[in-house]
Nucleic acid binder design. Sequence first.
DNA 1: ACAGTTCTCTACCAATTGGTAGAGAAAGCG
DNA 2: CGCTTTCTCTACCAATTGGTAGAGAACTGT
Lengths: 198, 198
Amino acid sequence: MARRSGTRDQILDRATDLFGRWGVEAVSLDQIAQEVGVAKQTLLYWFPSKDDLVEHVLAATAEELAVVVEAAIRAAPDDPLDRIEAVVKAVFRPAVRRPALLGLIREMSRLPPETSERVATHMRPLADRAVAWMRTEMDAGRLRRCDPDIVVALAYATVTGIATEPEALRVVGWSADTAGLRRLRAELVAFLRAALTP
Amino acid sequence: MARRSGTRDQILDRATDLFGRWGVEAVSLDQIAQEVGVAKQTLLYWFPSKDDLVEHVLAATAEELAVVVEAAIRAAPDDPLDRIEAVVKAVFRPAVRRPALLGLIREMSRLPPETSERVATHMRPLADRAVAWMRTEMDAGRLRRCDPDIVVALAYATVTGIATEPEALRVVGWSADTAGLRRLRAELVAFLRAALTP
DNA sequence: ACAGTTCTCTACCAATTGGTAGAGAAAGCG
DNA sequence: CGCTTTCTCTACCAATTGGTAGAGAACTGT
């Protein structure tokens, strides 16, 4: 999250934003280099190929999101709905400040299978924990009974979709100012709460 | 939906799939031409530029989805939750058969503003009707009271997200066979029902 | 058979793509 | 000081990009 200072970190940073906003294929090395303010060759010194850069960007992003989620889970209260709310809010903040973050995760499905598989491996422990946790909460009657695998994916899809598609929100007349953001977050939390209450 | 026969329609058809799957920027005219089985120049005869092709593909897709949704609304029962279920099922069928459809709508946010604005104009009447309808149902106490603008966008994000991100589902161990699809659709409908029940 | 559209083709173009080769600063270190 | 490592640069490359020019089929109506 912190904009770091070395050339390598600056490259990672700009590449994250550009890849997430426009898609990996749509962003050229020349463009990244120009925005960072170095020659393209400098990119290729730090990352021997574009694929390599993409992979490092993805790994760093997945890692960053995982850290944010872990922290939110640990800090959150015991009630499952409160906990979900805490996680959503934790993800919402960096996602709104840098919309590219979640957009990047989406780019996964457009990458060669081996790459996306490696990123998926990164996320799997987190997803597994979430699923297991939901299952126990359902057994305890504190969450609506359902298929936890799919519902974790549904919740993810809702949060990611809404955070990365300003166009869809514009269609219904939403605007991205502070008040709009607060309203959006509140509705998102209420939506998930209603969807998961027993 | 029907695979039509003229050269122009074949081009539109393949372009829809390829743009939706890989993103507009990632697909070249040469690639489309090759898959259709014609020379690139034939594409540029029917659509004077790539931008023009993109625009026609988007318009056709938006139109197609709008027709499906309209039909589902008209055929559905009066109860709002049943009606939502009918629409989701109606969208789910073509979306799963051709995942590119919803993926394409997502591409909107990556296009030049004028283009995305024109597509948005196409969708707006539908969204407006949905919002107005939700509002009256809420007033009648048959839907959970909330901000209908945002909740329409949320429901859209959930359906689109889940239908276009097989990767996210793979992470939680989901598989795309017939049984998996049925399970997914059932959970999706239950999720939305729970989220919108008063 | 005719001329006129309608359609698809080959041949080419300038610009951009990811990537290579290797020179030259800059900085640590004896 | 000199030597080595770390870093960034200019110059270039083959391949691919969206797009142009214009020739030739193939089907029209007469």
